Amino acid sequence: MGEASSVTPLDAATISRAKKQGSVLLYTNADADQMAPIAKAFETKYDGVTLRVLNMNDPQTFQRYATETATGVRTADVVMATDAVHMLNFVSEGNVLDYTDPNLENLPEYAELAPGVVAMSEDPLVAVYNTALLPQDKQPEDLASLAELSKSLKGKVGTTDISNSQSFGAVSSYVTRHGDAGWKTIEALGPNTGVESGNGNLMQKLTQGEYHATYFVAGSVRALIEGQDADKILDYRYLTDGTPLLPRAVAVTEKASSPDAAKLFVNFLLSVEGQEAACEGGFTPYRDGVDCAYGLPAIEAAVGADNILLGGYPKDVVKNKDSIVDRWKQAFGR
């Protein structure tokens, strides 16, 4: 995974220009609580450079950027997104600055997702159970076993809709790894699974007991469960037949008003210091030298390196999206 390096900084001239620009405007699908530790650490390290964060889903991010650049309005300096298809289209349309951060030499090859696009974290999709309704010794450790159990829990198992970029990423990674066997598991789950628009509704219904089990839940819930009151009710597990890890991509935009400040922010995110701040927000750092209970080594220890669906974007993800979505909808009766 590359040698750890606490500081792989930008050159002094770029840092000086960044400080004169004074702010970074970030569009991201991460919520305010997730971003707060990152913003605090970045602004502390680079006094005078402010991080402004607008939270929105991935389609809104890319649509807003298109609208603002078309009308000449100030737009994002950096975008952070999970949707592989939208991000690759964003690159192909010429909206990303072809910037190579010096941290890349200390990161694994899969960190670079496309020209100018790099993963700031590799976030897992997990299964989460209501322990009052499904005790630990009854909780499936893999998705295939959950599919079998779902036959007796019809309507008591939940997930998010395939239109959610994290759900699509999880499904595409899982079936890419397992092929037809993976699709058989997904199709066995379909008739017995309730579908929610997002993780908020999913977790609320799980906590209230409407669901006994949920799967392909955003890994950020780990920080909300461990050591919190929720851990008396909820328990999460990494899936042993394939825990999808989705790269959360960051890129400096072609129309950035503060391009050097944007580079400074990306450089910070990819440093050990930035990755540790990201860990505080529930993200999953993947580079060596990062102290994080939710980091990649912890997931590898739980399920084994061979059972992690890790890497860059799935091959042919843009070309295959429609067929994956259509097959999923058929399985789930959507």
Results as ranks from 00 to 15, higher is better:
94 G>L: 10
96 V>E: 06
86 H>S: 15
73 V>I: 14
81 A>S: 14
75 T>P: 07
86 H>V: 11
99 Y>A: 11
150 S>A: 11
154 K>P: 03
83 D>T: 08
89 N>H: 12
123 D>H: 10
92 S>N: 15
150 S>E: 00
69 T>F: 01
174 Y>Q: 01
150 S>K: 01
166 Q>F: 11
155 G>A: 07
96 V>Y: 03
157 V>C: 03
72 G>H: 12
155 G>R: 05
109 E>Q: 14
171 V>H: 02
140 P>K: 00
128 V>W: 02
175 V>F: 03
172 S>L: 11
92 S>D: 15
118 V>T: 13
117 V>K: 03
94 G>T: 13
134 L>T: 15
156 K>V: 03
108 P>N: 05
100 T>Y: 04
124 P>G: 08
176 T>G: 11
122 E>P: 05
92 S>H: 09
88 L>I: 13
149 L>W: 00
177 R>W: 05
165 S>I: 02
74 R>P: 12
161 D>K: 02
164 N>V: 01
126 V>I: 13
96 V>G: 05
105 E>R: 14
172 S>H: 07
144 A>M: 02
104 L>Q: 04
177 R>M: 09
153 L>T: 08
176 T>C: 08
94 G>D: 08
175 V>Q: 00
159 T>E: 01
166 Q>R: 12
163 S>K: 12
80 M>W: 08
107 L>W: 04
156 K>Q: 14
182 G>D: 02
184 K>H: 11
145 S>W: 05
187 E>F: 03
130 N>A: 07
83 D>P: 03
141 E>M: 10
169 G>E: 02
174 Y>F: 15
120 M>V: 15
121 S>N: 14
131 T>F: 08
94 G>Y: 04
116 G>H: 05
135 P>A: 10
178 H>A: 01
182 G>E: 03
94 G>R: 06
165 S>D: 10
145 S>M: 07
173 S>T: 13
91 V>P: 00
125 L>D: 10
132 A>R: 13
133 L>I: 09
138 K>E: 13
99 Y>Q: 09
119 A>E: 09
117 V>H: 05
127 A>Q: 12
143 L>Y: 01
102 P>M: 12
137 D>L: 10
100 T>Q: 11
141 E>I: 08
134 L>I: 10
172 S>Y: 06
115 P>S: 13
74 R>L: 14
85 V>L: 02
88 L>C: 09
115 P>G: 12
117 V>S: 05
116 G>M: 05
72 G>L: 06
166 Q>E: 14
155 G>F: 09
185 T>Q: 03
185 T>F: 06
181 A>F: 00
150 S>D: 03
97 L>H: 08
107 L>M: 15
74 R>C: 09
167 S>R: 00
68 E>R: 14
168 F>E: 02
74 R>M: 13
162 I>P: 02
81 A>F: 01
80 M>R: 10
162 I>V: 07
144 A>I: 01
102 P>C: 14
143 L>Q: 00
76 A>V: 05
135 P>W: 04
152 S>Q: 12
110 Y>H: 14
119 A>T: 10
103 N>H: 10
165 S>M: 04
85 V>H: 02
162 I>L: 07
127 A>S: 15
172 S>G: 03
77 D>N: 10
88 L>Q: 13
160 T>I: 09
68 E>C: 04
74 R>W: 12
149 L>N: 01
102 P>N: 07
113 L>R: 01
109 E>A: 15
147 A>S: 09
